[in-house]
Design a protein around this nucleic acid. Structure first.
Lengths: 144, 144
DNA sequence: CTTGAAATGGTCAAGCTAGAAATATTCTCG
DNA sequence: CGAGAATATTTCTAGCTTGACCATTTCAAG
């Protein structure tokens, strides 16, 4: 029998669990991408559009998207070229830009939100199970 | 009150849950990356090394890594340049290559596995909670 | 006021990833 | 056997992501 910690049952179980978490996350990503291409958007662009619940700064968008600010610059560049979003001067902070959806962007966002709720990857779970899952995930995230 | 499906409580809850899944997946990725850099590896290289439990083909590695075969080519190229892995002719199928760890690769893999079990992002959950989480994730993945 | 720390957004280089097309080989069915 | 479908890998292209570094602006202490 081996004494390597990586082959202990506990370690193996945790590795499998990590795989499952990644698998579901990937499935969610695929779901978003499939809906996004329908509207001529990439996955990242769709995520940005979804998170733009109102006027906000680059940094705020980056935080909502869980990405680096430099990445937000890249994504917003694309959306701006498509005329879906505008960079305006921030009313009180001249360092910051205020991101505002154009009418076209706002309309596309509405269509995107409607698509995203259809056939959610989590539809296989009951509302009760979803609550349990949420509790577990929150606990796991907080502790580490 | 709005009738838009995207603002129904159910839809909002599912969106939050997706965010949590992605959050935990990202945390796991960070954990892997932090351990990987210690050994001079990138995150993807470490994942490949971890999944190389024995000789296997490119396709099999890609499946284990949940990525496209073209991506596996890219990663294996890097590992091969570092002398950690070898592409050998497959003994029975001339289309396929057989990936085999070099002695250096095997030694590094052992060190990696030991690092990965330390401070797992799932340590905040009890064994019982981990089992529950696993069941829920499996059900969600299978159904969609 | 002024100086320096901190924050904001941008640029650039490097690497990761998916997807389509190309090549070589194997398998299957008639 | 032979034609065509299927498979294994690679190449190429395009897009995503990070991290280091920079210019501008804000803020606070002196």
């Amino acid at each position: 029998m081996s004494t390597s910690p990586s082959s202990e049952p506990q370690a193996v179980a945790e590795r499998e669990l990590c795989g499952l978490v990644n698998g579901l996350a990937q499935q969610i990503a695929v779901h978003v991408r499939e809906r996004a291409v329908t509207l001529g958007l990439t996955s990242a662009q769709a995520t940005a559009l979804r998170e733009l619940t109102g006027p906000m700064t680059m940094r705020e968008l980056a935080e909502r998207m869980s990405c680096e600010p430099s990445n937000a610059t890249f994504i917003v560049d694309k959306l701006e070229k498509q005329g879906l979003i505008e960079r305006r001067a921030h009313p009180t902070d001249r360092r910051a830009k205020q991101l505002v959806l154009t009418p076209e962007g706002d309309a596309l966002r509405e269509r995107l939100l409607e698509l995203l709720v259809q056939d959610s990857p989590l539809a296989g779970l009951t509302a009760e199970q979803q609550r349990t899952l949420q509790d577990l995930l929150e606990q796991a995230i907080i502790r580490s």
